[in-house]
């Protein structure tokens, strides 16, 4: 069912980098603990300077895809068993997470994962760990992060564990910025946050993308917000990419509207109807 969209891709303007992507995931299969097959051949391309969204429900494989890219899978006993992840043409899925951070790819994990007992500022400084820059540069970068997140400056001396969810999300993104990354893999930034805060965070992501030229690959359940800020989207369902296309087109796609935005021509549908519609649709395709 992704056919018409893939064809439409060629005439989309902001996707010029698609032929020579910064990050290229091709047909990867991921198995946890040697038995649990989570990704069944996922392929996607992330062009330089774009915001690419990875959408899908719980257990679709968004987080696993991000972790396969950032090489964090290994510490969770997961493994890329087939396919290839390449960054600037270099195979990276078997490397060390620290190497990837040095190459410019850093992940902001789902659920923030701030260092609770460290202060906000110390949290940010840990992002600087892999860099060999001077102290002056460190302070300059710190100020830059504070300019994007003024709220963090106010709370710089408090333990991260005691800050609010929104502040923790900012702290996690700020920490990643301290590594001066080229690409940030952002996992579910909207989790557990009020809609207003979600807007604010996405606004900052957009600003970072436009002003600092940071490339984003973001996994989101909140399809509505993600498709408004992203340039291109992939939709995952139980370990497979089922649909992809420029964000603007995905937003108008009747299937996406139906399944992920809860809208249809006949107005809002009840969940039961959607489910049967979906089953029928699968059967046909």
């Amino acid at each position: 069912m992704s056919q018409p969209l893939t064809q439409a891709r060629s005439d989309a303007a902001p996707l010029a980098g698609m032929d020579d992507p910064l990050l290229d995931v091709s047909n990867i299969e991921v198995i946890y603990n040697h038995v649990i097959l989570v990704l069944k051949g996922v392929s996607l391309k992330v062009p330089k300077g774009g915001i690419t969204a990875l959408l899908g429900g719980n257990g679709a494989g968004k987080t696993t895809t991000l972790k396969a890219i950032s090489a964090l899978l290994h510490s969770e006993r997961g493994e890329v068993t087939k396919g290839r992840v390449s960054y600037r043409g270099e195979t990276v899925h078997n490397s060390d997470p620290a190497d990837l951070v040095r190459k410019g790819v850093i992940q902001v994990m789902e659920g923030r994962h701030c260092f609770e007992h460290l202060t906000v500022e110390e949290n940010l400084l840990t992002g600087f760990y892999t860099r060999k820059a001077s102290k002056a540069e460190m302070n300059a970068d710190l100020e830059k992060v504070y300019s994007y997140f003024p709220r963090l400056k106010e709370r710089r001396k408090s333990q991260a564990g005691y800050t609010s969810g929104g502040e923790q999300q900012m702290c996690a993104i700020g920490r990643a910025m301290m590594a001066k990354p080229e690409t940030i893999l952002l996992d579910e930034p909207s989790m557990g946050l009020a809609p207003q805060l979600v807007e604010e965070i996405f606004g900052i992501v957009k600003e970072l993308n436009e002003r600092e030229g940071v490339t984003f690959l973001l996994a989101e359940q909140n399809t509505n917000v993600a498709l408004r800020f992203a340039h291109y989207g992939y939709i995952l369902e139980s370990g497979r990419v089922v649909m992809d296309g420029p964000a603007a087109e995905l937003r108008e796609n009747p299937d996406v509207k139906e399944f992920y935005l809860g809208m249809s021509d006949e107005g809002r549908k009840s969940f039961r109807d959607v489910r049967s519609y979906r089953r029928r649709k699968r059967w046909l395709s």
Binding site: L72, S75, E76, P97, A98, M109, H113, T126, Y129
Partner: peptide, 11 residues
């Protein structure tokens, strides 16, 4: 504090 997060920032 957090092994996974430490890994993710390249420690």
């Amino acid at each position: 504090d957090d092994h996974q997060a430490a890994l993710s920032v390249g420690i």
